[in-house]
Design a binder for these strands. Structure first.
Lengths: 124, 124
DNA sequence: TATGGTACATACAAAAAAGTAAGTAATGGG
DNA sequence: CCCATTACTTACTTTTTTGTATGTACCATA
């Protein structure tokens, strides 16, 4: 997220893992703290920076910026700047980003089911 | 992974996010560096600690232990200890763990497609 | 008695991610 | 000229995750 050390074991391991496994690669791509929340908010359509900020309470501007940048770099969202003052910037899912949606739905359902299951277990 | 500070903003935000969103919850559950690789290896069936270690080159015993513990705590894998010397411990997916498999497949395909796409883009 | 294998545990260090606080550019309106 | 608004930067601190190195229990076998 900030600077990474190119030759740290940590970074080399990340590369090794994501090269080796498409699944790990995918999860890395959306693994940041706020990324999925951002993507969820963008599902219905375009949103401005300030709208995202308002919708995701607790996120700081810095975190929002960083995650948006990474998602953009990874081609999952598209950023459009309008030459106005004060500035207007809109974010939206790209085609490949939209392809994630049906998969999310399933993961989401799995999560809900898992959550229920854990509740039952801890209740016993 | 180690000790977490219960009332840090970091931890409170994690809780807020995972409570709010089943999707983020799911991804958190498999978000550790080596977790998905471990789960992939377990897909065909039970494996011993040492077998996992051998199959996932570069992983340290500490990391393998930590991730296995978390996956176990989260009910995604099951740990069976045999009272032998030297010890034998086997790991396998649970029912809810197995339910993740079809979702992985799709995510994996998405990842492969995304990877191709990024290659094309950077080639231009 | 020393050695070896298995599946860990522990103390510590390094790296990365997340969060805090303050500042910036541009310009239209008062 | 001063202030407000928007979408960010930047420098810094804290927290969390990952990695390194070493140690442990158990008993069978050499």
């Amino acid at each position: 997220m900030g600077n990474i050390k190119e030759n740290s074991t940590n970074n080399l391991n990340r590369k090794y893992i994501t090269n080796d496994c498409d699944l790990t690669y995918s999860v890395c791509m959306v693994g940041g703290r706020w990324k999925l929340l951002i993507l969820c908010k963008l599902e219905p359509g375009k949103l401005r920076f300030s709208e995202l900020k308002r919708e995701i309470c607790n996120i700081t501007e810095r975190m929002l910026t960083l995650h948006l940048r990474e998602l953009e770099t990874d081609g999952i969202i598209k950023r459009t700047v309008y030459a106005e003052v004060p500035p207007r910037v809109e974010y939206e899912l790209t085609a490949i980003g939209i392809e994630l949606i049906p998969i999310w739905k399933q993961l989401s359902q799995w999560g809900a089911k898992h959550r229920e299951l854990m509740k039952e277990v801890s209740a016993v």
